[in-house]
Design a protein around this nucleic acid. Structure first.
Length: 628
RNA sequence: GCCUUAGUGGCUCAGCCCGGCAGAGCGACGGUUUCGUAAACCGUUGGUCGGGGGUUCAAAUCCCCCCUAAGGCUCCA
């Protein structure tokens, strides 16, 4: 419960009109009430209070009573006021808790209560002495301290954001200043459409959009679905979706561990809030973490891998000779996003983040490491074949000092970027960049990000020993390939965009749950088809056989609907041809002739060096249950 | 979280405005057909109309509360 306590000369209030369907029954509608020399408690009952109404009421009464005593007020007015929180309880619970608070106070002090569920006019005269205004948050545990200081800090950050300058920087080093409030400054820039779209979104220029296409596609393709029995934003993955998720995770592992030689670790999901550095990190994430109470201890679920990683690194003995040190964790993460903000695979409350952190000796090494990551992640993003835009956010002094370096980064990606120049440090990083995917309805989703952090190492005690034996804080690069779920969404969005342009939609071959479908023309050729599928599987690709008793046309249609990239129809011709010749229906390219080696070569070429896991589905289609 | 819209067999949807026996296609199942590049034919099965409450002789349909989703707002260290 939130309380705003005002020590007043008087308050007058009048109930005017019901503000909800079932307001409290009252007699004094339109009658003015006046209480003098009182402590007014504007009270907001919150969702979380519903779990322990008696304790909340007791604690609220204690808080009010204590303050009434300290300002020597003999009267208390409880004034229902729904505007102190964005997480309101149900009206009936609120009414019950407020009445209970009133009853608890009765006898100890003279108590009044304004009616619940009415629009009221009021007039109040605050005494204005130092203790006359105070805010309190009441929880089921102990009453907490005032929060004015934090609020002030928050406001400064918002003001700072509003003073950001924006510009577009090209790989040739040209700068175009833009003003988000004046579309003519950027709409005609000669840059690719995704960047223009990103800037429009950043400027708040919203067109009417439907739901992004992946919300429908993820279900239609039997990949992922909502799980109403869990919380909002926690999904179930069917076998095909799990295969795609695992393949993307495998790719993240290849980059982080095989390529970059990062150390792979694992840390817990759940953390105690009475640890100061955990509480400190949780505080940065105000009201967005899952909290739970177990055995009288308060815990939060991690919102990223940082909690456990920083704790681990604090205890690590590092020498300057070992730096940079790279640490990788595939972190299932939890964020209590606003319910109205969770959309398909774009924003979830539970998602999987491949988290790579690099610990560097100094800024010079940090920048080199940044360049290295930038290069790797750019190659990764390009190999996903999706439309994306690049944005940098950077503190002004840092941009001015390192402008040439930014141009060199843009040369790697080969396209212009949006640069947001922040007037001062607003977060823990001086620099970050994002690769933003543009979806089928013009929205953008952040995928890859790298952040250059010069603050957290000192704050959390992550240090190495330098040449002279002195302990020094690291420069930390936080980086993520985004989230696995977002990549799945972005890939589906790209398929939808291709379809809108008249191309048949498909997943990249390395992510297609079934890469080759073999269709026997009649049941007589099922055995032949199965042998062929097994040979394909032995080459490391995912093949199945449509052995159902259906017409060839119908089975081909099914393969099209399933977005199967390669379809083989086999019958007498294939079984008897010598040397063997196959007719391969390549999605989007028509029917081609090839022998077995030719087919394998086509698959190898499409998959490239990306992971190719074995199938999670039965080889015979008649044995596959329908999940969605 | 707020506002708006939606939720009807496993899936896609009609019925709701104006209350009167819960419908279709696909899928699944059974049978006939053994088929050459986007849907063979016949039959059967399957519903707590998102959940709860109310109004009514009677509720998928009207009213209230809740859950879930999408759009917009806000948010996105």
């Amino acid at each position: 419960m939130r309380l705003l306590l005002i020590h007043a000369d008087y308050i007058e209030f009048t109930a005017l009109e019901p503000a909800m369907p079932n307001p409290e029954q009252i007699e004094g509608k339109g009658k003015k009430e006046r209480v003098e020399e009182c402590l007014v408690a504007f009270s907001t009952v919150e969702k979380s209070d519903e779990d322990s109404p008696e304790e909340i009421a007791k604690n609220a009464a204690a808080t009010i009573l204590e303050h009434a005593a300290s300002v020597k007020a003999g009267k208390v007015v409880i004034y229902p006021y729904a505007h102190l929180s964005s997480s309101l309880s149900r009206p009936d619970s609120a009414m019950e808790i407020l009445k209970e608070t009133e009853e608890t106070l009765r006898g100890k002090v003279e108590v009044f209560r304004a009616p619940f569920g009415w629009y009221k006019s009021f007039e109040i005269k605050c005494k204005g002495h130092p203790l006359s205004e105070l805010s309190r948050t009441v929880t089921a545990g102990k009453a907490c301290a005032a929060e004015e200081g934090e609020r002030a800090a928050e406001e400064t950050a918002i003001e700072a954001a509003q003073r950001s300058e924006f510009l577009v920087l090209t790989p040739e080093g040209e700068e175009f200043r833009i003003d988000l409030a004046s579309p003519e400054t950027f709409l005609n820039l000669k840059v690719e459409p995704p960047l223009i779209q990103l800037i429009k979104n950043e400027a708040g220029m919203k067109e009417d959009r439907g739901a992004p296409a992946h919300v429908r596609l993820m279900k239609k393709l039997e990949l992922v679905d909502y799980e109403p029995a869990s919380d909002i934003g926690h999904f179930r993955f069917y076998p095909k979706g799990t295969l795609i998720k695992d393949s993307l995770e495998e790719l993240a592992y290849d980059i982080a561990v095989r390529d970059l030689r990062a150390f792979k670790i694992e840390t817990p999901f759940l953390y105690r809030l009475d640890e100061p550095d955990i509480a400190d990190q949780a505080e940065k994430f105000r009201e967005k973490d899952y909290r739970l109470r177990v055995d009288k201890k308060e815990f939060c679920l991690r919102f990223a891998g940082d909690f456990g990683l920083f704790r681990m690194m604090k205890g690590v003995t590092m020498s300057y000779r070992q730096l940079p040190i790279r640490v990788y964790e595939l972190s299932p993460s939890f964020r209590l996003e606003q319910s109205g903000e969770c959309v398909g695979l774009k924003r979830l409350r539970n998602f999987t983040m491949p988290d790579l952190h690099c610990f560097c000796a100094d800024l010079e090494q940090g920048r080199n490491e940044y360049t290295e990551l930038f290069r790797k992640y750019t190659r990764l993003t390009q190999s996903m074949e999706i439309d994306y835009a690049v944005a940098f956010r950077v503190v002004k002094y840092f941009y001015e000092e390192h402008r040439d370096w930014f141009v060199s980064l843009l040369k790697i990606v080969g396209k212009p970027a949006l640069i947001e120049v922040l007037p001062e440090m607003k977060h823990y990083w001086v620099l970050k960049h994002e690769y933003q995917a543009i979806d089928s309805v013009g929205g953008n989703t952040q995928l890859v990000t790298v952040q250059l952090d010069i603050e957290d190492a000192a704050r959390y005690g992550i240090e190495y020993t330098d040449e002279s034996g002195k302990r020094r804080g690291c420069i930390i690069l936080h980086s993520s390939l985004g989230s696995i779920e977002r990549w799945m969404g972005a890939i589906l969005e790209q398929a939808a965009k291709d379809q809108a342009k008249g191309k048949p939609p498909m997943l990249p071959v390395w992510l297609s749950p079934i890469q080759v479908r073999v269709i026997p023309v009649s049941s007589a050729y099922v055995g032949f088809a199965k042998d062929l599928a097994e040979r394909i599987a032995a080459e490391g690709f995912r093949a199945d056989v449509d052995d159902r008793e259906e017409s060839v046309s119908k089975k081909i249609r099914q393969a099209e609907v399933d977005w199967i990239p390669f379809v083989l129809v086999v019958g007498e011709k294939e079984a008897s041809s010598q040397p063997q010749s196959l007719s391969v229906r390549v999605r989007g390219e028509g029917v081609k002739c090839a022998d077995f080696a030719g087919l394998v070569a086509m698959l190898r070429e499409r998959v490239g060096d990306r992971p190719c896991l074995p199938s999670y589905l039965p080889m015979m289609l008649s044995m596959k249950p329908r999940f969605a």
